[in-house]
């Protein structure tokens, strides 16, 4: 394999690269172009250059409000995932091996179950005819069903459930790279359990928390099925808005503009934060 080191890697990776060129770069470029095309109710897509769609997105507050909601939800979901995922990863790491593998099954298993089924579960729990609401009403604790369906809270809770495993995984991976004796070392130098956690453990898993946050944020901001089911037609996020423009209104160019904006914003945020994380921690962690 080492006879032709110049050509070999290109021959090996070439087919895949061609597939990606044809099936990722070209379609994405076409989508960006599409966002600059004209569209009319009766004339359909007109391949003429125009900034109409972009102007409409800027001019109409509706789009701003949808994107604002999308990112608000994504940030809150990320915070919720940090709040519950970080402690859970730490606890998981301290479980005995037997309990740990059982718990991992319970926590990571849902990742393999279709998002549709998991979102359905939340609708069944908290829908107006849902089990929790019916139960609480029968017990006389509440008069009307708790609002959950078609609310931001509902979408946030559902997405937190869907995405929390990613946070646990990211933090857990960071914890596993930790030398277990480091905790003992801090103890031997007189640090209390809390000080050890704050001064020794936490700073070492911050990169894991940050990269987990980037993942959760990106997936929450581009989530589709959960907001569509829990948020319904009224509570739109960027992904469901693009879907509507494409498959209901059939205004493809406008849908393409929404999609392009979402893509650009997310890529900028992901690449930017990864750069920051790398620069900040390059010294300490290779």
């Amino acid at each position: 394999m080492s006879e032709r080191p110049k050509a070999a890697p290109y021959l090996l990776a070439g087919p895949t690269a061609l597939v990606f060129l044809g099936l990722v770069l070209i379609p994405l470029a076409m989508t960006v172009l599409l966002s600059f095309y004209d569209w009319g109710q009766y004339k359909g897509i007109v391949p003429e250059w125009t900034l109409k769609n972009w102007r409409e997105m800027v001019a109409d507050d509706y789009f701003a409000s949808v994107f604002l909601r999308t990112f608000r939800i994504a940030i809150l979901v990320t915070l919720a995932c940090v709040a519950i995922g970080v402690p859970e990863a730490y606890i998981l790491n301290r479980l005995s091996p037997g309990w740990r593998s059982v718990s991992l099954l319970a926590i990571l298993g849902p990742l393999l179950v279709s998002v549709v089924a998991r979102t359905l579960g939340w609708a069944l729990l908290f829908g107006s005819t849902g089990v929790v609401n019916q139960g609480l009403m029968k017990l006389g604790l509440i008069a009307a069903p708790l609002p959950f369906m078609f609310t931001e809270t509902g979408v946030i809770v559902t997405l937190t459930h869907v995405l929390a495993p990613f946070m646990v995984l990211a933090v857990w991976a960071a914890l596993q790279r930790l030398d277990p004796q480091v905790e003992n070392a801090a103890g031997s130098l007189g640090a209390s359990a809390f000080t050890t956690w704050r001064r020794v453990i936490l700073p070492q898993i911050v990169p894991g928390v940050l990269s987990g946050s980037v993942i959760v944020f990106a997936l929450a901001a581009s989530a589709f099925a959960s907001p569509a089911i829990i948020g319904g037609r009224r509570l739109k996020v960027a992904a469901t808005l693009a879907y509507d423009e494409f498959l209901n209104t059939l205004n493809w160019p406008l849908g393409a503009a929404v999609a392009t904006l979402l893509l650009v914003a997310l890529v900028a945020i992901i690449v930017g934060s990864n750069r920051l994380i790398e620069r900040r921690y390059a010294q300490v962690f290779e």
Binding site: D179, Q181, V182, N184, A186, S188, S192, V200, Q204
Partner: peptide, 20 residues
């Protein structure tokens, strides 16, 4: 007695330095 009250100076086999 908890380890952090024993006041021992310890050098660990893996060093266990604080990497950060």
């Amino acid at each position: 007695m908890k380890p952090n009250r024993r006041g021992l100076g310890i050098v660990f086999q893996s060093y266990a330095l604080f990497p950060h």
